[in-house]
Design a protein around this nucleic acid. Structure first.
Lengths: 98, 98
DNA sequence: TGAACATATGAGCAAGTGTTCATATGATGG
DNA sequence: CCATCATATGAACACTTGCTCATATGTTCA
């Protein structure tokens, strides 16, 4: 292996973010949240998987700081963490449209 | 499940691209190719995995039309498929830098 | 042509992933 | 305060993934 020209840590970091986005369910969750802030049950309904599956994925998305949450009455409302995430999503969609 | 507002096929497509980018080895390959066009052996050397592993990944990257190849003497030189891929990579890196 | 080099491929395996089911935890409001 | 609703969590699973090893397939040029 030659002298390293490329920052490995950066590669790991970037690919980790891509990996998160590389799953249809998570992508769907983010796409819904890009349109409106909703609770877990509504997410499950929109995405079409169980509440449990949504919860598991939300935990991951939250750990990676892609989504945020706040309690509203007896619901917990999820939203995109920041504009940054939104930009990333929209860029991706634009790129896909080609 | 409610009336579908989001294009599922699009979600699948976009997340499929992200999935490809969501692996450090593939990311590393693309990062090298963003700097120069090289043969399989040199890629293996730079990335630090076996020739076989590189070949397997290159096949995937080629199928997804992210890289292109052309024979030069006894070597096969790989390169990024187009500017489009390059843009995607650079965007990702910029986003990661934050 | 054929020995040597470059790349591709297939089987097999260990590790990782996303889902479901069952259940726990937590918070609310009557 | 406690029944109920909302969310989170853990175990188990089928499935996928990326790697290695061995070998096949090309390609070149002496």
């Amino acid at each position: 292996m030659k002298h390293r020209v490329i920052d490995t840590a950066m590669l790991e970091g970037v690919s980790e973010i891509f990996k998160i986005l590389g799953d249809p369910t998570r992508m769907h969750i983010l796409a819904v949240l890009a349109r409106k802030n909703v609770c877990v049950i509504e997410l499950a309904d929109e995405v079409g998987v169980t509440q449990s599956a949504i919860s598991h994925q939300l935990r991951m998305l939250k750990t990676m700081r892609l989504v945020a949450s706040k309690r509203m009455g007896k619901r917990i409302i999820y939203s995109l963490a920041d504009k940054h995430v939104e930009t990333l999503l929209k860029t991706a969609i634009r790129h896909f449209a080609e």
